[in-house]
């Protein structure tokens, strides 16, 4: 019991990095998801193609390799320093999950019944007004559960930043294990519990979101 407490104490030093990266990268991912999801629906082929390229590259390659690209390769190749490790972690996770979320956004917008668009036209709305007042409010309800699921995945994805020497929960766990090999099973058990407890509110919010999304949508 005492061991668990002392392990928890050590791990909690990484809590701030894990949570702050989660929050910042989800905000970036939501932003990218919305922008690129809507651009995918643009009437301009070039815009659709370029956005599609971003999405497929980031969905089609592994997050950890993207992280290493941003951390090692790009600064070396182009001499562009991308900022602190924290910023690089946020960019990699945010862009990666933004690509997934953009498909959620696009899919939800397309899933709103076409009759809604026709009613908006019959009321003489502009494309913008139609999107803003009719389509998006309904599409967002449909998106909520998937946004919740991807946020939970992002929480787990943040563990990768320990590999670019960011001091998150897993990083402190690994340090602890290397100085105390016999405790490895216990250490990793406590780490699992840490992530699970962090995920609990997200799981709860996702359930709520599912309830909301069941109401008030025409499809």
């Amino acid at each position: 019991m005492e061991d668990i407490l002392s392990i928890s104490q050590e791990l909690s030093r990484g809590l701030f990095v894990t949570v702050s990266i989660l929050i910042a990268s989800s905000l970036l991912a939501y932003f990218m998801g919305f922008i690129s999801g809507l651009l995918r629906l643009s009437k301009y082929t070039l815009v659709r193609k370029l956005t599609g390229f971003y999405i497929e590259v980031f969905r089609g390659t592994s997050l950890i390799v993207q992280l290493f690209w941003l951390y090692y390769a790009i600064p070396m190749l182009f001499g562009i320093p991308l900022g602190s490790n924290w910023i690089i972690g946020v960019i990699a996770i945010g862009l990666n999950y933004g690509a997934y979320l953009s498909e959620v956004v696009r899919g939800s917008v397309e899933a709103v019944d076409n009759g809604q668009t026709e009613a908006a036209i019959a009321l003489n709305m502009s494309s913008y007004q139609k999107m803003r007042y009719i389509i998006l409010p309904q599409a967002i309800r449909m998106m909520l559960p998937e946004f919740g699921n991807y946020t939970i995945q992002m929480l787990k994805g943040t563990a990768l930043v320990s590999l670019i020497s960011l001091n998150d929960i897993l990083y402190y766990g690994n340090i602890l294990r290397s100085s105390n090999l016999s405790q490895a099973p216990l250490i990793y058990l406590v780490i699992l519990i840490f992530y699970f407890v962090l995920a609990l509110p997200l799981i709860f919010l996702t359930r709520k979101a599912e309830d909301i999304s069941k109401k008030g949508v025409a499809n």
Binding site: Q116, E118, A119, M125, G216, V217
Partner: peptide, 26 residues
Amino acid sequence: GMVFQHFNLFPHMTILENCMTAPIHV
């Protein structure tokens, strides 16, 4: 103006808001 076979009301708005949205925004 047009009325449709399948109504096409806006499900996320009350019926009063359904009536008010276009005169206000458009």
